[in-house]
């Protein structure tokens, strides 16, 4: 019983972390066809900024929101100067974001050094909670809460606002969106910034749990890739379910075979590619 609760809480909180990380990645890829390999780097910078902003202002909430805003602005700049000029050439975009991983990582090393920063959760989240007979850290519950809130807000945005409808329409038929009189370039900029902001938010929320260190970008970008492939491209709810599944896979593996915990998400992804190339939850076809 107690191990079951532990698996549920820990797996779910890990899954929500994956969701915060990958939802923006999936959104950008689905709409724009841009595979942003530097998404993990955005997450990493979110870790650092969240840590610094929390520390300097003394407010954890300000830290995570500030990190999201900063990374969002960073995404806006990146889209305008690096992604937009290469529109129409997917491979060059991919290669560019691949190179950007190293620029952003080395830049972080120059500024923050190579050491890992540990952050404690704020006081109001540092205790433990009791669920049935099991004691779990409050911060784990906060991660689940944050993931669910972001999922609900994003679902609301996608389903109920005109911007959301346009994003869904563009994910389906990008060319036709221009043909109904919508400035697609602007929608792309907004979406890219939004996607990056989500990565920044995820990073800042992850810091008290994972810490902030320079190789976290590569570790995490693969989780984002795994989520998108398992969840199906362009499917936001698919990304959510895939994140939860990966959270459980990852936690259960780390519980029983710690050596394989990092490889487990990649292995799960490869299995899905071989069995169902379009992902488990529909979405666009992988043939394109």
């Amino acid at each position: 019983m107690s191990i079951l609760i532990q698996i549920i809480i820990y797996g779910l909180s890990l899954g929500m972390l994956y969701f915060l990380l990958s939802s923006g990645f999936s959104l950008i890829f689905g709409l724009m066809g841009v595979l942003n390999f530097a998404h993990g780097s955005m997450f990493m910078w979110g870790c650092y900024l969240g840590y610094i902003l929390s520390l300097s202002t003394g407010s954890f909430l300000f830290g995570i929101i500030g990190a999201a805003v900063c990374i969002g602005v960073m995404g806006l700049v990146m889209e305008k100067w690096l992604i937009q000029p290469l529109r129409g050439n997917q491979l060059r975009q991919i290669l560019l974001t691949f190179g950007l991983i190293y620029v952003l990582e080395e830049l972080a090393k120059v500024i923050f050094g190579t050491r890992a920063y540990m952050q404690f959760p704020p006081e109001w989240l540092s205790g433990s909670a009791h669920i049935f007979s099991e004691t779990v850290p409050q911060y784990r519950l906060f991660m689940i809460f944050a993931g669910v809130i972001v999922f609900l807000l994003m679902t609301l945005l996608l389903k109920k606002t005109k911007l959301g409808m346009i994003i869904r329409a563009g994910t389906d038929k990008p060319r036709m969106v221009q043909a109904i009189g919508i400035n697609v370039a602007r929608i792309f900029s907004i979406t890219f910034a939004l996607g990056c902001a989500l990565a920044g938010l995820g990073g800042a929320i992850a810091t008290p749990f994972l810490g902030a260190y320079p190789t976290i970008d590569m570790e995490q970008v693969f989780n984002a890739i795994a989520v998108v492939i398992i969840g199906g491209v362009g499917s936001f709810t698919g990304a959510f379910y895939a994140s939860v599944i990966l959270g459980f896979i990852s936690y259960i593996t780390s519980y029983f075979v710690p050596e394989l915990s990092m490889a487990s998400t990649l292995l799960a992804m490869l299995v899905v590619v071989m069995i169902r190339p379009n992902g488990l939850f529909g979405g666009k076809t992988s043939e394109n």
Binding site: M165, R168, A169, T171, K173, M176, A179, I180, G181, I182
Partner: peptide, 27 residues
């Protein structure tokens, strides 16, 4: 398009993930 052109493409290209209402609303 904004200056007053309506375009009905060859393959219809309706936004299949959207409802009829949403298709019309964003147009």
């Amino acid at each position: 398009i904004q200056s007053g052109v309506g375009y009905v493409p060859e393959d219809r290209d309706i936004f299949s993930d959207l409802t009829i209402e949403e298709n019309l609303l964003i147009s």
